[in-house]
Design a protein around this nucleic acid. Structure first.
Lengths: 346, 346
DNA sequence: TCGTTTAACTTTATCGGTGACTTCATCTCT
DNA sequence: AGAGATGAAGTCACCGATAAAGTTAAACGA
C-alpha cells in the first residue's frame, strides 16, 4: 500500500539508493534528479519506513520518557514540553507512567530498552541506582529529570531544590512567621534538597526547627500527597508549640494541609501561613489561593528534551551534564499576611 | 552489543530460524532444544529487535494516542489508563498533545502514520473529517475517544453526552433550581450532546431555556476554559432574569464561573448552584467543592485500549463499534441546597 | 593525447528478524 | 516391507531501508 523507495526509483528509472540519497540530502545528486524525486515523493505522500531505517542505522528516532505519575500536573507539563520539543526535530516520544512504583518503573525501562529508544528521560522512583547500571549496560544514554541520585554521575535537568527550600522558608520568615514547620516528602533527592534548604534558611537567621516541626508525609495510598498532607498537618497542629507557617513539600500536600488547618478552625494565613511547591495551575481557584514555589516545569521539559536530542545526535558518549533551573516564589493569599510591602508579589 | 538470534543459534549449533521459532512458541520444536534456547536467552537477557520484526511482519506493536491537552486531567487520566492497559499486552504507546489545534493535530497524525503505529487513538480537535480520510487511506485503523463526528462511521469510546447533560440538569431541577442556565463548550460533539441533554431535561418538565441562558464559552486563549467560564458567568449574571443554577460544560469552566459568582457577591449554592463535568480530582479542595458529572475517564481509557488491542490483533477490518460509558453525578457543596434528602449523595 | 579528477549514479552487502517450503529420520499402519 | 504421516529441524527469499565501495562518462590539466 504505502509507497516505497523502490516504487519511486522504478518509476523514474533510478536506483533505490539514488532516491534514498535524495531523501537524506546527500550531496552527490544532480539538481535535476533531486527535483524529480522530491516531486514524486510529494505526490505520493511518501513516508520512509522507520522500522527499516532503524534496522540499518541502529537508531530509532524515538525517545522514552518515564514519569512517576502522568496525572500529576508537574509531570504532565514536563511530558508535554518534551513532546512538543522532540516533535520539532522528528523524534517521537514513548511515555510511560510508573505509578511511583520502583518495580513497575523497572519494567517500563526494560520495555524502552527492548524498543531500543535513542535516549531515556526519567523522573525516577527508584531508591537504589541498580537499574541505571542496567541501562548503562545496554549503552542507552539517559537523562535524569527532577530527581537525582547522589552517587550517580549522570545527566540531570531539574530545579535546585535547596534553593526551593530556602526561597519558601525565607518568604515565610519575611511574612513574620517565627515557628515554621516543614512537611517533607519521601526519601528522594527533591525532598531531601528542600528540607536542606529549609534548614539553611532558618539557620541563616540563627533558628533551628522546633521538635516535631519537621514531619514526614506518610505514604498513605495517594501518590500526590493530599491525604498525607492532611494527616501531617493534623499532627503539626497538635504539636506542643503550634507552627504559624508551613512549607509543604509539594502543592497536593499543601492542599491537604490547608484543609486540615481550616478544619481545625484556624485561619490561613493569619494563624498559619502555607507555602507549597509546584505552582500547579489550579491554585487560583482554591478556598485559599495557594502560595507556591514555581519550578518552571515547562523549562525543565524543554531543557531536558534539548539535552536528550543533543545526546541522541552524537554517537560518542558525552560527559554528564547538570542543568539547574532557578525556582521562583509565587505569592498568593495562603501566605500573604501583610497587605503589601513585605510580601513580594511575583 | 545486544544479543541477536544468530549469536544464540551459533552457540547452540542451531539455525537462526529454530531459535526464532522457540521465541515465538512455535510447535515444532523439541522440548530439549526449547529449554536450551530459553535458558540461553534468559542468561543473555535477550530482547528481540523490534525494528527487524516490524519490518517483516508489518506490525509495530505500538499504538498512537493524540489528545488535545495532556495537562487536562481528563485526558491525562485517559492516557494513563491506556498506557497501563497496553503495556500489559506488550504494546507501547506514543503520546502526543495537539494543543487543541487542528493543524498541529494533523501533523501529529502524520507522524504516527509515518511510524506505522498499529492503531491510532484520538480525541480529536478537528472540525472537519478530512483528516480521517487521510488515515483511512493509509489503512491504519483508528478509534475516536471522547469526541465523535456525526457523519463519520468510526470506532468510538466515550461517555453518552446527552446523558451527561440530562443528569446534571435533572440534578439542578431536583435542587429546586427553576432558572437553569448552561455554559456550553466549543462546537464539538461533547458540547453539542451536553447541550441537547440539558434541553431534553428541561423539556421533560415542560421548561424551555430562558433567553440568554445558553451561553458559549469564549475561546479566550485558555484551552481548558477557566477564563471563558469566568466571562460567560459574568454575562449570565447580568442577564435580565438571573439564573439560579448553572450547568457548565466542564470543570475548568465551572471553576471560572464559580469565581465570577463569588466575585459578584453571590453565594454558592444558595443564590446560584453550579455543576461541572469531568469530576477532576482536586474538586475537594476548592473554595466551594464542585459538584460534577463523572465521565469515568479511567474506564474510557481502559475500554479504548481494549478495543484498540482487539483491532490490532485482527488483520481484517472490523465493523465500527461504539462503546458508551454511563456518566455518574457526584454531588458536592456547589449544588447541594438542601441538607439532605433531596440531594443525592453519590 | 593520456592519465587523473570529479560528478552522478549503481552495485553489493547488510541490518535482525519472519514466513513458506524443504529435508530427513523415525514411526505407524496395512 | 513399503507408503504415508509425523516431528524436528534447516534453506531460502525477503521486509525497506542505508553504508561503503564500485562504475561511468565528462571535464581537466600538463
Amino acid at each position: 500500500m504505502a509507497a516505497r523507495l523502490k516504487d519511486i526509483a522504478d518509476e523514474l528509472g533510478l536506483s533505490v539508493v539514488t532516491v534514498s540519497k535524495v531523501l537524506r540530502d546527500h550531496p552527490d545528486i544532480s539538481e535535476g534528479t533531486r527535483k524529480r524525486v522530491l516531486k514524486r515523493m510529494r505526490e505520493l505522500n511518501y513516508q520512509p519506513n522507520l522500522a527499516a531505517r532503524s534496522l540499518v542505522t541502529g537508531r530509532t528516532w524515538t525517545l522514552g520518557l518515564v514519569v512517576p505519575d502522568l496525572l500529576h500536573p508537574f509531570f504532565a507539563e514536563i511530558a508535554k514540553a518534551i513532546s512538543a520539543q522532540t516533535r520539532k526535530h522528528g523524534y517521537s516520544l514513548l511515555i510511560s507512567s510508573s505509578d511511583e512504583d520502583p518495580d513497575l518503573e523497572i519494567q517500563e525501562i526494560r520495555q524502552l530498552l527492548a524498543r531500543r529508544v535513542d535516549v531515556i528521560l526519567i523522573a525516577s522512583a527508584q531508591s537504589s541506582v541498580d537499574c541505571f547500571q542496567m541501562i548503562e549496560e545496554q549503552k542507552t544514554p539517559y537523562v535524569l529529570i527532577d530527581r537525582r541520585f547522589a552517587d550517580l554521575d549522570a545527566h540531570f535537568v531539574g530545579v535546585d531544590d535547596e534553593a526551593v527550600g530556602m526561597l519558601a522558608t525565607s518568604h515565610l520568615l519575611e511574612q513574620q512567621c517565627s515557628r515554621i514547620a516543614h512537611i517533607r516528602g519521601p526519601n528522594v533527592s527533591t525532598a531531601i534538597g528542600r528540607l536542606e534548604g529549609y534548614r539553611l534558611a532558618l539557620a541563616s537567621r540563627g533558628i533551628a526547627p522546633l521538635p516535631g516541626h519537621v514531619i514526614s508525609l506518610g505514604t498513605s495510598g495517594d501518590h500526590r500527597g493530599e491525604k498525607g498532607g492532611y494527616e501531617a498537618a493534623k499532627q503539626l497542629l497538635a504539636a506542643e508549640i503550634r507552627p504559624d507557617g508551613v512549607f509543604c513539600f509539594n502543592d497536593p500536600s499543601a492542599l491537604g494541609a490547608m484543609r486540615a488547618i481550616l478544619d481545625a478552625g484556624l485561619r490561613i494565613p493569619e494563624d498559619v501561613a502555607v507555602v507549597g511547591c509546584g505552582n500547579l495551575s489550579y491554585s487560583d481557584f482554591l478556598r485559599v489561593p495557594l502560595s507556591s514555589v514555581d519550578q518552571g516545569s515547562e523549562a525543565i521539559g524543554k531543557c531536558a528534551a534539548d539535552l536528550a536530542l543533543r545526546i541522541a545526535r552524537k554517537k560518542t558518549q558525552t560527559r554528564p551534564k547538570t542543568e539547574f533551573m532557578s525556582p521562583r516564589m509565587v505569592v498568593r493569599a495562603s501566605s500573604r499576611r501583610f497587605a503589601d510591602g513585605l510580601g513580594k508579589t511575583s
